[in-house]
Design a protein around this nucleic acid. Structure first.
Lengths: 153, 153
DNA sequence: TGCTTGCTTGGAGTGCGCTCGAACTCCGTA
DNA sequence: TACGGAGTTCGAGCGCACTCCAAGCAAGCA
C-alpha cells in the first residue's frame, strides 16, 4: 500500500504482471493503463521479449508491470480519487523523474492539493447538512400525510 | 437559503431579477442559466413582455427570475457541488413538477445520493491520510538533507 | 494447421457539463 | 435618431478523461 523511497526486496523493479492482471488489481481498464503510459503519467513499462526474437519493443511485445509500477498506480489512483487533474499528476510525475532535487516542489504540490481536498471535504459536509434537512422535511410531510401544493421541494 | 414548502411572502414567485443579476448572485454564467432552463433543470422562467407588444415570448423578451427560482438554483448548486449528475437532478426536477405524490420518490433519491456523498467524504478522508503521510516523508527527507536515489516518491 | 485468447499500435470517438458564436432584439440615454 | 449594452435564439464547439476500433502479433492447445 505504501509508496516508499526504498524497497527491501531486490525484485521490486522486476516486471511480473500482465496488463490484464494489473487491470484487475487496480480497477483501471487495460485501455486506461496504456493511455497513462502514453501521456507520461507512468514511466515506460518494461516489455517481455517475444520468443521469436526482436528487442521486445515491436508490435506484439507485451508489458510486464513491476511492484513498483503497482505502487505508483495505487498512488495515482488515490490522487485521482481526490480529484487531482491528470495535468497536475503529470507535473508531479515529471518532478519525480527529475530526481531528488525536486522534492521540495513535490511537497509543495501535495500541500496545495491537500488544501483543496480539505476544502472539498468541508463543502461536502455542509451540503450533507442541506440534504439531511431536506430528507427530514420530506419524512415529516409523509408522516403527517399532509397534501399542501407548493412547487418548491 | 432554505428551499421551503411554503413561503410567507406573496411576491415569492414574482420575477424580479435579470439573468445578469442571477448570474452574479449564483456564480453561474448566463449561458449556463439558459442551458439549465433549456434542458429542463429549471422550470420555464417568466418573461418580461416588451413594451412594443407581443406575448413576451418572442425573440427579445427577457427572463425575470423570482426568489423561488433563486432558491431552486441554490439547491441545484448544492447538489452539483456534491457531484450529483445533471441527469439525476433532472429526474428530481421532474418529480417536483409531477406534484406532491412523488415526495417519497424524491426522498429516496436524496437518501441514495446522501449515501454517495458520505462514501465520497470517507474516500477523501482516507486519501487525505495518504497525502499527509507522503508530505511528512518529504519533510523528513528535506530536514535530514539526505540524498537517496529512489525513483519512487 | 487452425483456432482462441490476450495483447500490440495509432488514431478516432464518446459522454459530460458546460461554453461560445452569430445574428438578432430591446431599452435607456444623448 | 443613433448608439451602446444587456438580453434573445439555436446550434456548434470545447476540455477532460477516458474508451473504443481496426488490423495485426504471440502463445497455447487440439
Amino acid at each position: 500500500m505504501s509508496v516508499q523511497q526504498t524497497r527491501p526486496s531486490a525484485d521490486y523493479e522486476v516486471g511480473k504482471y500482465s496488463i490484464g492482471e494489473v487491470a484487475e488489481r487496480t480497477g483501471l481498464t487495460a485501455h486506461t493503463l496504456r493511455w497513462y503510459e502514453r501521456i507520461g503519467l507512468m514511466r515506460h513499462v518494461s516489455r517481455q521479449r517475444p520468443r521469436t526474437g526482436g528487442d521486445g519493443n515491436g508490435r506484439g511485445s507485451r508489458r510486464r508491470y513491476s511492484d513498483h509500477d503497482l505502487d505508483w498506480l495505487e498512488f495515482v489512483g488515490k490522487m485521482r480519487l481526490t480529484g487531482m487533474p491528470v495535468a497536475d499528476m503529470l507535473r508531479y510525475a515529471e518532478l519525480v523523474r527529475q530526481g531528488d532535487h525536486t522534492r521540495r516542489a513535490r511537497r509543495e504540490l501535495l500541500e496545495d492539493h491537500r488544501e483543496e481536498v480539505r476544502d472539498r471535504i468541508s463543502d461536502l459536509q455542509s451540503c450533507l447538512l442541506v440534504i439531511d434537512h431536506k430528507i427530514e422535511t420530506y419524512a415529516d410531510a409523509e408522516a403527517s400525510n399532509d397534501d399542501e401544493h407548493s412547487q418548491a421541494g
